[in-house]
């Protein structure tokens, strides 16, 4: 058991297809993110960022290697978890390029849905959702329809949703791509706050120049290989 590690990846490889048309999208990738830490994953288009995120998110199966999540080995040349759906539900938070909220649920239930799916009673799930909405400064919109929210509010609700089941890790897929500079930095500030408040390891896939200086640590991925870099770590106020 490695309690100090939110997520650790060792020698992870992913090959799409087979034979002559096979693509090695990930080649022996190593990576580790501590609880409370926000790291950036950058690299040119086609370098393997999305593939790595999908492997971590347990929606595609790696070819080889090892992945540890919150101290548990989830992959060691094969899945070590029988129900990946439950793994995703309880231990991984997802933030997408667009908020992707469920339009027919109000703001509270968009967040409360996750604890509900995990079997929590509605009341408890909603209380937890409200607490997160408060932390993210959107509690005043708790009863609103998602379509009534501004883009920034929607993104904050989606961050609350990612946090709802208190996962040890959150995977963010270009979360600031559609936002202007101020809003992008605001999202990064929130992610950093949440990471330390809930001791979550957060991986942010991005090629957004505006936010790259905010990372203290970065992984640069090129042609399926990762290179760890020290970031600028600009303070967010």
């Amino acid at each position: 058991m490695d309690q100090g590690v939110g997520i650790r990846i060792e020698g992870l490889s992913k090959r799409y297809g087979a034979g002559e048309t096979a693509v090695d999208a990930l080649k022996e990738v190593n990576m580790s993110v501590a609880p409370g830490e926000v790291v950036g994953l950058i690299g040119p288009s086609g370098s393997g960022k999305t593939t790595l995120l999908k492997c971590l998110g347990a929606v595609i199966e790696p070819t080889r290697g090892r992945m540890t999540l919150g101290g548990d080995v989830i992959y060691d040349n094969a899945w070590k978890i029988s129900d990946l759906r439950v793994l995703r539900r309880d231990r991984i938070g997802f933030i997408f390029q667009a908020p992707y909220l469920i339009p027919f649920l109000d703001v509270t239930d968009n967040v409360a849905l996750l604890p509900m799916l995990a079997g929590r009673p509605n009341g408890e799930a909603r209380a937890r959702a409200l607490e997160l909405l408060q932390a993210l400064d959107v509690a005043h919109r708790a009863k609103a329809e998602t379509s009534e929210l501004s883009g920034g509010e929607q993104q904050r609700v989606s961050i609350a949703r990612a946090l709802a089941n208190r996962p040890p890790v959150i995977l963010a897929d270009e979360p600031t791509a559609p936002l202007d500079s101020d809003r992008a930095l605001a999202v990064m500030r929130i992610l950093n706050q949440m990471a330390s408040q809930y001791q979550t390891a957060i991986i942010v896939v991005t090629h957004d120049e505006k936010i790259i200086p905010t990372f203290r640590r970065l992984y640069n991925i090129r042609d399926g290989r990762t290179f760890e870099e020290a970031g600028v770590g600009r303070a967010l106020v």
Binding site: V86, R88, R89, D90, P103, L117
Partner: peptide
Amino acid sequence: IREIAVLKLIGTHNRT
């Protein structure tokens, strides 16, 4: 379809 993909990703049962 997109909402369904999100629902599945965050761990909604197929039967749900």
